[in-house]
Amino acid sequence: MATQDERFTRAMRELRGDLPSDRQLGLPFVDLFPIAGTAISTIGDLLGTETVYATDAQAARLDELQFDLGIGPCWDALRTARPVLEPDLRGDPRNTWPVFSEAAAADGVGALFAFPMLVGSLRIGAVDLYARHALELTRVQTRQAASLADLVGRQVLRRALIRAAVEDPEEPESPFSRRLVHQASGMVLAQLDISADDARLVIQGHAFATGRSMMDVSRDVVDGVLDFSLDEQGKDDAR
């Protein structure tokens, strides 16, 4: 049976290969560390903010929650360019993101770890790992996860550059794409005659008030189920 170091070396070698699949990017973390799942996400203006791959539905929900709130371990990892380790989300949560911590703990998450994806001075995104119970990563595990995240970041950037060079890529859109939120923001912008940032805030506020995700609210906007201009008309009529 292969040792931890041998498995880590093999994973690093495979991640240096030619354009591994989404699944190949994420599975080494689950195979090497005692976690339940992982999500890989791009964050910021460089490649946009969206989930590239998630091993399971809960990992995807954790990413979406952080995107909706604009806070969480993945944001802090990218901002500081350092791993963010939250070994006991229920018993000793950090006060940095109480709303996110409470929601994640209620969803059955016991520990969270985020590792930035960096390529030189470029900040690509982050890799999130979660466990269902309190868990401490050792120094060796933390160092190995950070090294894997660096390689994953390089592969994510390589693939983005290749796609950008193709006028009509045949690759299907990721099921985690946030393009729907951008599309809905443009519609709300037109409905209310406000800035793009404010349009996104309207969607974010409505999602928070109704206990839904921004993706769900955005889908209603794009499908014509939700029209914020009607709310504004109602206010004008009441004056």
Results as ranks from 00 to 15, higher is better:
Arg61Gln: 15
Asp56Met: 05
Ala199Asp: 03
Leu46His: 12
Ala2Ile: 00
Arg7Thr: 02
Leu25Pro: 02
Val84Phe: 12
Gln233Phe: 07
Met1His: 12
Ala57Gln: 15
Gln141Ser: 05
Val156Ala: 10
Leu192Tyr: 05
Leu180Trp: 03
Arg178Pro: 00
Asp223His: 11
Ser121Ile: 02
Asp150Asn: 13
Leu89Cys: 07
Ala60Trp: 10
Ile194Pro: 04
His133Ser: 15
Gly120Met: 07
Asp150Pro: 00
Ala238Trp: 14
Val99Gln: 11
Arg219Gly: 07
Arg61Gly: 01
Asp231Glu: 12
Leu151Tyr: 01
Pro20Phe: 06
His133Trp: 03
Ala145Thr: 10
Gln24Glu: 15
Pro98Trp: 08
Leu62Thr: 02
Ser195Leu: 09
Glu86Pro: 00
Gly205Tyr: 05
Gln191Tyr: 10
Glu50Leu: 13
Ser195Gly: 15
Arg212Ile: 01
Val140Trp: 12
Pro28Arg: 09
Gln204Asn: 01
Arg10Thr: 08
Arg179Ser: 12
Ser121Asp: 15
Gly120Leu: 04
Asp92His: 14
His182Ile: 08
Asp236Thr: 05
Arg82Ala: 12
Ala184Tyr: 08
Phe115Lys: 11
Ala126Val: 05
Leu118Arg: 06
Leu62Ala: 07
Ile43Thr: 01
Leu137Ala: 03
Met1Ser: 15
Trp75Phe: 14
Ala11Pro: 00
Pro87His: 09
Ser121Tyr: 01
Glu64Phe: 11
Arg158Pro: 01
Thr142Asp: 10
Gly120Tyr: 05
Arg239Ile: 09
Leu137Gln: 02
Ser121Arg: 14
Ser213His: 04
Arg132His: 12
Gly108His: 07
Leu201Glu: 12
Arg94Gln: 13
Val52Gln: 07
Asp128Ala: 10
Phe8Cys: 08
Gly44Pro: 11
Ala2Cys: 02
Gly234Phe: 07
Asp92Ser: 15
Ile162Phe: 07
Phe208Cys: 00
Arg239Phe: 13
Arg239Glu: 15
Arg16Ile: 08
Leu148Lys: 03
Thr3Phe: 05
Arg94Trp: 08
Gln4Asp: 11
Ala57Met: 13
Gly44His: 04
Ile40Gln: 06
His182Lys: 14
Ala134His: 09
Gln144Ser: 06
Val222Trp: 02
Asp237His: 13
Leu47Ser: 09
Val166Met: 13
Asp107Pro: 00
Ala114Phe: 05
Ile35His: 02
Ile162Ser: 02
Val84Gln: 14
Val181Glu: 14
Ala104Ile: 01
Asp92Trp: 06
Gly153Val: 07
Glu14Arg: 08
Phe115Ser: 06
Asp193His: 15
Arg139Ser: 12
Gly108Val: 04
Gly224Pro: 03
Asp220His: 11
Arg219Glu: 14
Ile162Leu: 13
Glu167Lys: 07
His206Lys: 04
Asp68Thr: 07
Pro20Lys: 11
Phe67Ser: 02
Phe228Cys: 11
Glu6Pro: 01
Asp193Leu: 11
Ser174Arg: 12
Leu46Trp: 08
Asp18Thr: 11
Ala105Ile: 06
Asp231Thr: 08
Gln204Trp: 00
Glu14Leu: 09
Ser213Val: 02
